[in-house]
């Protein structure tokens, strides 16, 4: 913990998200307790832990689906003071703070086409361009241009994920792997500064999983945003994370680089006890 604080002082510009003393209670159940860690820009921060360790709850707090019981979540920006996520309304975290997420059980708009899914993700930008509907309704050229740009961006993502031929298909009828990828593309279309991925590799075959690794590294290196990643698939986490946070029973038990984590006795203990349950 102290090490993390030290780095944040040394390199303040690199820190994207600080989570401090985060606690989330549901009635008597403490799902997350006093968790403190940091995520940096241009880094992939993995969050691992046995089932029920509080990973998804942590995510839900960061992305505004739950209001944390106590603790502070600050998102550092290049311009202006940090945003305190715990005080923001759910949708504002996507809109203002630009934290995007995916869901453990994919939540696309199944009846809408893949391309439309990506257009919806650019809603706020397009709403402004359409003069909050009024200018768009009378067909102003400014809006048309904005829409064409948005479409181009969506198509670029579809190309990047190799699913441009599926653009007009309903998202719900896409193959599973394509749905996972589309959800990531949709999150990326919101122009996030922090991308939170909840088990993106779940249900993927090894080849798709490798492609996903490649994609995430590309997002990190080329777009330069921070990624927060919950994952069970150790080959993904250990392979691409720059930094790993380990949770167990709602508490943070370790925090460090993949190599450090692999040697950490607390982690080994937590995992060996739960190996059968956890190994998917």
């Amino acid at each position: 913990m102290s090490a993390a604080a030290a780095t944040s002082v040394a390199l303040p510009d690199d820190t994207l998200l600080t989570v401090e003393h985060l606690t989330m209670r549901f009635g008597g159940l403490v799902a997350v307790e006093e968790v403190t860690f940091e995520a940096k820009r241009r880094q992939i921060t993995g969050v691992i832990g046995p089932n029920g360790a509080g990973k998804t709850t942590l995510f839900n707090c960061i992305t505004g689906f739950y209001k944390p019981t106590t603790g502070r979540l600050s998102l550092h920006r290049d311009d202006g003071p940090p945003l305190l996520l715990e005080q923001m309304d759910g949708y504002l975290i996507g809109q203002k703070a630009r934290v995007a997420r995916t869901f453990q059980n994919i939540r696309l708009f199944p009846g809408m086409s893949a391309l439309e899914n990506l257009m919806v993700a650019q809603h706020n930008k397009l709403m402004r361009a359409s003069g909050f509907t009024f200018l768009g309704l009378i067909g102003m050229p400014g809006y048309r241009r904005a829409e064409a740009e948005a479409k181009e961006k969506a198509v670029r993502w579809l190309e990047r994920l190799g699913m441009v031929n599926l653009a007009d298909d309903p998202a719900g009828s896409l193959p599973y792997g394509a749905q996972r990828r589309l959800e990531i593309a949709r999150a990326m279309c919101t122009d996030p500064v922090l991308l939170c991925l909840d088990e993106p590799a779940a249900g993927l075959n090894p080849r798709e999983s490798a492609e996903l690794n490649h994609l995430l590294l590309e997002i990190r290196d080329q777009i330069g945003i921070g990624i927060l990643l919950i994952e069970h698939d150790m080959s993904v986490v250990m392979g691409i994370s720059d930094h790993i946070v380990v949770l167990d029973y709602g508490r943070k038990i370790a925090d460090g680089t993949p190599t450090e984590i692999q040697r950490d006795p607390a982690v080994i203990r937590a995992y060996l006890g739960e190996e059968e349950k956890d190994d998917r």
Binding site: G64, Y91, F109, F132
Partner: peptide, 24 residues
Amino acid sequence: LPIGRAWEALREDETACRALGINP
């Protein structure tokens, strides 16, 4: 228009809309 797409998106999945920063 974006508003219409957002309507349909809300109909399909409100939670996902919130995650995308749409004010439901």
